[in-house]
Design a protein around this nucleic acid. Structure first.
Lengths: 182, 182, 182, 182
DNA sequence: CATGAATGAGCCTTCATTCAT
DNA sequence: AATGAATGAAGGCTCATTCAT
């Protein structure tokens, strides 16, 4: 019971942090703003997170599409089903302005935090290659480049969602272009 | 004469600003840092630019690939030559860490400055559509999505350059996939 | 039984406080530091001592050489034996860096706490005079000044122990100079 | 002219710092208090001194009796005249509560700043020995101990000035005891 | 053109203290 | 008897900006 109260407060702070960070960026946003948004005192934020940086790192982790990869890879899919899963999960995760903004802020600030830098590297290299292999049953450079095109278009979509194209249409087209079943 | 001195100092400030902003991000970087890098006083920066925001906007403009579009469109190219021109100019512009960093910081902060927000919108919609039309001789949604894939992959390349693939190979592969001449 | 547990915890806090206060000074040291050193929670310190000031006062009392005076005076000594007792007890009490540091911090902060201020006054005037009378069988100004020289040299010794002189040599010399038996 | 304005402001800050530090101690006193006392903004204090520590060190240097030693040694005095000079200069320097308080605070905090720690060491060892040699024409341990008694009594006098004894009487008595002309 | 001096606002962080449990 | 959670106040420091010179 008391433990859940604990978690509720912490989660409230995290939610508020996402809101504020996504609106103002990590360094323009201040702990004061987050505390006000969360309805707690500044000092309490330092009780749960030892420093602003620690809080930033926590939010960065949630902002990156690591879970998207994990979810789809754990389903043991392959070929276009894996692509489709990734696209759907990805666009789902970033289907609101909040997550879209926090993603780009995270990409911008990521390299300043070794922990986040590593996760980004892993995402862009190791995981991308793994997915490429699962999807195209090949680890040729072409497969790898195709995966980059795939996530490049999804990123584009997250940064500036196209207004006159539906999500499904977008996904279908991309997959059609990149994955023509033999 | 004095006018050219003017320009030299102003350009030095801009160069220093790019260096500092790209390293620390727009809001972590301070005018003091830029002044030190440029070897001038803080106050002088305010003489050339009325505020930090004005300086930021100046840098943002230089950070976006607007010139890339302009250069290639002005050459009246079409089809794969236009794609190739865009890819080369783009990867050329962002072939150093300085420009790569400043680009991502600009994307992150862009929406806070109406002027930059508009440029970004224009890039991602109007210009993209124009290019799509020139390249594919069509303004179908598919052409538009292809262009997004094209720039998505280039952006990916700017954010995290792949280590084991040459620029030429990358460009050729993308163009081959997106543009199979009938 | 529980009462002795009481005392053990309280004493542990006091020991930790001496350690921390002597290292950082009364106001640079925080309750958190003391709690960590003692292995208890901050709140518990406030259960035993109602405020930081109360704890400081407790430590101040232990830091001053009041017990030195009391011990030697209670022995009903006089003349040089009393001087010798005082010197030995004094140098004994402050023969480690911990006590030396806490003494000087106490002298510095003493005047801020009326209780400590009074003790200091009493030490420097009433007790000094009493001792002067016992030692020199006289309450002339000269006796009083001699006592100040006596404690002045001991204080000097506590603040900056001389490296190449043994404690005994130091004490003997001082006593010889101040107390030439007729 | 402008230069003197500069110096005036800096000196005003230093004076205010002495006032505030002597009243509250180095770490209880805040930059805000000093700024208010000096009638300037907090930020201006950081313009003249890069940090609170830098300001503290500046004040510490002024608080120690280094100048007392220098003044008297430069006069090429010896024997009791040198003692008398030192005593007078010393008691002169610390003849007001401000300087008395700042001295004890400096002794307490000195060891935290290497620069001050070294000065204190130098005062208590090198300079004391030099003076001992000049005064007693000998560098025996006894001369050294006598000098410690001398400064010990002066320090005592600075910490708790005796109320019913005049400065002259005090000085004369000390010198008579320590220095009996052959 | 250029700068040093000045400031108000704000930032991150820590502190002493309290209170429910 | 003991603690984790909570807070208001304050601390040192930096920042963008201004202005007299």
């Amino acid at each position: 019971m008391t433990d859940s109260r604990h978690l509720i407060v912490k989660e409230k702070i995290i939610e508020s942090a996402i809101k504020i960070f996504s609106k103002y960026g990590y360094s323009n946003a201040s702990i004061r703003m987050i505390a006000e948004e969360a309805g707690v005192s500044k000092a309490l934020i330092f009780w749960y997170f030892n420093s602003k940086d620690e809080l930033i790192i926590e939010i960065c982790k949630r902002a990156l599409p690591i879970d998207v990869f994990e979810t789809c890879l754990s389903k043991k899919l392959d070929g276009s089903s894996l692509l489709r899963c990734l696209a759907n999960e990805y666009l789902n995760k970033y289907n609101n302005q909040l997550m879209r903004s926090i993603l780009i802020h995270t990409l911008a600030v990521g390299d300043m935090y070794p922990e986040i830098h590593n996760k980004l590297d892993s995402l862009c290299n190791k995981m991308l290659k793994e997915v490429a292999k699962q999807v195209f049953k090949s680890d040729s450079k072409e497969s790898f480049i195709k995966m980059r095109m795939f996530f490049g278009s999804l990123l584009c979509c997250a940064l500036r969602p196209p207004q006159d194209i539906s999500k499904d249409e977008y996904v279908n087209t991309i997959i059609k272009i990149l994955y023509s079943e033999p």
